[in-house]
Write a protein that binds this DNA or RNA. Structure first.
Lengths: 144, 144
DNA sequence: TCAAAAAATCACCTGAAGGTCAACTTTAAA
DNA sequence: TTTAAAGTTGACCTTCAGGTGATTTTTTGA
């Protein structure tokens, strides 16, 4: 499919719903509704983001979630790492098991360069840039 | 993971083991051994390649498999289509469900261009170019 | 015509991703 | 001090890719 997992997409959309300053707390159920993510599934995603130190949760009445840094300091690259693990940026384009520097596949050299550009793009893509999109009217479509 | 499925990789390696002229028949078991693919799994891959008209099988004693065109005329692009279906070349980089021209995600414009380059590269990658790699000593590593 | 050789097919197993549910813990307000 | 609000956790389900095994069908050569 040549793409990151759906969980990464959900994570990015969820984070874009939170206070970009990392101050005021937001409810998980509000995030779920705004980004149209099944609430129990969102919980699992938030758990991984917490394990990676990207968000913090506060329990109990008046609780909620917040970013540990500002939205300008968090990149989609980090989010992908938190959800998929760091292996996502060293995969073989053709999906050949055992493809490596020592045993390159026919696409290895090309993909090494192309993939590096993609990684750099995601490293430069911060959550506040994502927010520009979501605020400009982007809404998760309701899937039938 | 940003990559095609392992089945596509196996398909490419399997096709690279066949007669590039599409004349002499090769045994499925020989392909499986040469490319180090589990034989029953290879059968399923070959079935999809046959459904797509890329290979032909001849049953019975003295039978085997052959390409329907020469290796110079078959591209990795086609093979990916045959195995994954044509959707592999229109996926959203971030894995966001519902991302489209009408409702683009923050990476949509960038990924549209980057993906087009990848697709063009695979469309230019023919099986005889793959064979240059496999003949030059590339061997499927035995996975432990 | 019969047996061996070969591809084709079917059923099944396993693990991971996506998704759901219910129970549990923490906390602050009443 | 009770209780309701909130996040947290663990069990479970479904689907699909990856992988395996056994059976069936076709074909040819003996």
């Amino acid at each position: 499919m040549i793409s990151l997992s759906q969980s990464v997409g959900y994570a990015v959309l969820a984070l874009a719903q939170m206070d970009p300053e990392g101050k005021t707390l937001v409810l998980a159920s509000d995030i779920a509704e705004a980004a149209n993510i099944p609430k129990p599934y969102l919980s699992k995603i938030l758990a991984r983001l917490q394990a990676a130190g990207i968000v913090e949760g506060k329990r109990g009445q008046g609780g909620g979630l917040r970013l540990t840094r500002t939205a300008a300091e968090i990149t989609v690259y980090e989010v992908a790492d938190a959800i998929e693990g760091p292996e996502w940026r060293c995969s073989c384009l053709l999906g050949i098991p055992g493809c490596s520097e020592g045993k390159p596949c026919p696409a290895h050299e090309y993909w090494g360069k192309a993939r590096a550009e993609i990684v750099e793009t995601l490293r430069a893509m911060t959550l506040d840039r994502v927010r520009e999109f979501t605020e400009a009217g982007w809404k998760m479509p309701i899937l039938s």
